[in-house]
Amino acid sequence: MIKIKNLSKLYQTKTQSVQAVDDVSLTIDKGEIFGVIGYSGAGKSTFVRLINRLEEPSDGSVVIHDKDITKMQHNELRNKRQKIGMIFQHFNLLWSRTVYDNIAFPLEIAGVPKAKRKEKVLELINLVGLSGKEENYPSQLSGGQKQRVGIARALANDPEVLLCDEATSALDPETTDDILDLLVSINKKLGLTIILITHEMHVIQQICHRVAVMENGKVVESGEVLDVFVKPQSKTTQRFVQQLNPLEHDKNNLAAFINDRDDTEVVKVHFIGNSAKRALISEVSKKFDVEINILQGSISPTQEGAYGTLFIEVNGDNAVIKQSLDFMQNEGVEVEVLKHV
């Protein structure tokens, strides 16, 4: 378990002070994939570098498996860092070394004997799907392959924690999905705790169990990914969620679909888990004397189950519309009536 308490980082220059991280407290469970999301300048990259003390905190503590990183002296910290792997947005590979040698590098530094190094490197090459690329140089690899080398290198010393700082930002969407699938596989096979920094909501949606949202150095919201998706509280979180629902993002587009009638309601319906696979709209149409027009809908998988959002227009008698919406809520879906769109 990782316990982060009152963590802060203040940068002081001759002309100004910048509070990059401001009194952040989080608990991250062993073996989970924890996401930290924020827009540029939110402080998320500084935050992740404070966890392994690549940046020195101004205040607060980081405790990993009952060991306070912030109180460690140089030699103890160096040994502890071997158990904290890190991968980067731009790979940070050694361009004069082959795939094999890049992955072997941290093992060399740790003083692992040559025979054991070879065994470990070949195991990792197979784990990340790079068999046959051992003698290739980084310049001969695609972006996704370079990041796989970075992941293998980060795993070389059997870390307890893997820090991912915008690990997919430089990749195309298909390659991003491949890398995210690899991280999930590693998480399950090795029971590895992963802290993932990103500005992309679909990355959080796809692999994270819980998420913290940062703005101006502070955590403005945190919780289970499904809870954050369904009930975003802060304006920053709402902006991220809107990226996945274009009609919600542009209420003018939504208004273009709506009949300007007193007997019409426009409703946003959230489906979670098994309810996302249920033909509830069909049931409502058969059970109640209402007409339902689907404006937009999507279902997205998360690590905790499916999550769906549906925008519908419901036409009919006001009393019957209310009955149909009450029925949907009683069936376990969340219903939000958009009175003024």
Rank of each mutant, 00 (worst) to 15 (best):
N187V: 10
T193H: 07
I194G: 04
T198H: 06
T176F: 05
I194M: 14
S169G: 14
N187R: 13
I186Q: 07
T176S: 09
D172W: 11
A167I: 03
I197S: 02
L190M: 15
I194H: 07
A170D: 06
T198F: 02
I179E: 02
T198R: 03
K188G: 01
A167D: 01
D172G: 08
L171S: 09
E160S: 11
T176M: 07
C164A: 13
Q205N: 13
L171A: 08
I186R: 08
S185V: 08
I204W: 01
T198L: 04
L183G: 14
L190C: 12
S169C: 15
N187M: 12
I204C: 02
T193Y: 04
L163M: 10
L192Q: 05
L182D: 02
T168G: 07
N187F: 11
H202P: 05
T168D: 02
V203G: 00
D178F: 10
D178E: 15
I197Y: 00
T193L: 08
I195Q: 10
I195H: 07
L162R: 13
D172I: 12
K189E: 11
L183Q: 11
E200P: 00
I195L: 15
L162K: 12
M201K: 01
V184S: 13
L171C: 11
C208N: 02
L182E: 00
I207R: 01
L182N: 03
C164W: 01
L162N: 11
Q205V: 09
D178L: 15
L180N: 07
T198N: 03
I197N: 04
I179L: 12
I204A: 01
E166F: 04
I186A: 07
T176I: 03
A170N: 11
T193G: 06
I186E: 04
K189R: 12
A167L: 10
L163K: 09
T176D: 04
V161Y: 13
I179T: 03
I207G: 02
I179Y: 07
E174K: 14
I204T: 03
D172A: 15
E174M: 12
I186F: 07
L182I: 03
